[in-house]
Nucleic acid binder design. Structure first.
Lengths: 230, 230
DNA sequence: ACGCTAATGTCAGCGACTGACAGTTGACAA
DNA sequence: TTGTCAACTGTCAGTCGCTGACATTAGCGT
């Protein structure tokens, strides 16, 4: 169930290879069906039938219909966490998170392609964002990642997460921007990875000024009055 | 189905009154069962049986088992929106949102009590936060409210929501903090309304400094170097 | 070749939810 | 008062996601 990567033995035995092939097939077929006829209009039976296994077998590989939709997303997230852990200590929290996403996106392409076409994953992301039930699940998963991230940031800065609210606050703001970015990207025309990368960079670099500036002033007013801001 | 409030005629006919009573009974019983034996361990049949109606009737009042869990939350949210719309134009976006939540909480008590005991609603909120399926739904609902809020803020400031990212960014940061606040409140001991109110006030007023300050400095460093911040 | 065990299939069943149809009951007019 | 209409409700059958139990198949090491 939880085997990650042998990474050395390509021939791990026929049994393992068969399992891997079944899993991949279920995943690929499921995403293909979801993105074409829609998540709700795809039954687990149809997925299982297409791969020629029983419905019961599907549920032995994926705990739910939902889980298969997030299988690739799962990979991307763990990549982000790994990247964040290796960020130099000199970077400030927000900068470290910013760079971690951007860097992880630079190397994730091939890892995805080993399982499903990247283009299919992009379509899957759009499907998740536009399917209420999946959007809900996506948001919940995001908060879990958010918690992990806050813990990492707190460790980085040598802070006590239970006593100091600042890590959680900064992470909340960060992921909030990430979510908005993802949604806007989905609404736009350009569904490329370069597109979402550029959008993310732009928005993240906009957050702090947006919170501090007086919106009614024509442009940046460094010495603005009101201490309360925004 | 969507009758809100006649607010004038107390005698709206026997039929209407019966419907209202059935709905209220279903709601109260459902929340009571959810909060005692748990959401997942409560079946729709049990709710319907307790009110002595058929399961089919339950689904004529509530589109899903989920919906009944959020019925009161629904009221609270629309109260916040109403409050936000009446905020004086002189207040800055973040301040307006801050005051809208705090003010709406001051007057929501009686409105809730008309349907279910406030204490039951508090327990319901805790249940939502600790039930994965409901937490997911809660987050999705929050983003919908977030979108409405962003639109209101944009109108207030005379900005084009589709062209200017700042309203969405500020709202995202705001609701991010609200979410964290709610979760921490749920983890604490004090489940009173005063408690969550104080926590919210504290955290909201912490957001901007937390983003701008250098965490490694002993305390506030107004003239900090690095322009990128956080 | 032969057990052992993991992987799979089959079957029965629960719970959320829906459509269709029939029965009941307020509302309103004659 | 009565009767008609429309709204509300109950019943039933069926779909779909998901699970436990048990039998069957098929790699694996000896």
């Amino acid at each position: 169930m939880t085997e990650r990567q042998a990474a050395e033995e390509p021939t791990t035995g026929l049994r393992e290879r068969k399992k891997q092939r079944t899993r991949d097939a279920l995943l690929r077929v499921a995403l293909e069906l979801f993105t074409t006829r829609g998540y709700e209009h795809t039954t687990v039976d149809e997925i299982a039938d297409a791969v020629e296994v029983s419905q019961r077998t599907f549920f032995r590989y994926f705990a739910s219909k939902e889980e298969v939709a997030f299988a690739v997303q799962e990979m991307v997230e763990s990549r982000f966490v790994a990247e964040l852990l290796t960020r130099p200590a000199r970077e400030r929290p927000f900068t470290a998170m910013r760079n971690a996403v951007l860097c992880s996106w630079s190397s994730i392409g091939e890892a995805i392609e080993a399982v499903v076409p990247v283009e299919l994953h992009m379509r899957t992301y759009l499907m998740i964002e536009s399917t209420p039930a999946l959007l809900a699940a996506h948001l919940r998963r995001s908060t879990e990642l958010e918690e992990r991230t806050a813990r990492i940031i707190a460790d980085r800065e040598g802070l006590d997460l239970d006593a100091d609210p600042r890590p959680r606050i900064a992470v909340a703001a960060f992921t909030g921007v990430m979510r908005v970015t993802g949604r806007l990207w989905g609404q736009g025309e350009d569904t490329s990875m370069e597109s979402i990368r550029a959008l993310t960079e732009l928005y993240l670099d906009h957050l702090e000024p947006a919170l501090a500036a007086d919106w009614r002033a024509p442009e940046r007013t460094p010495g603005a009055p009101g201490a309360h801001g925004v």
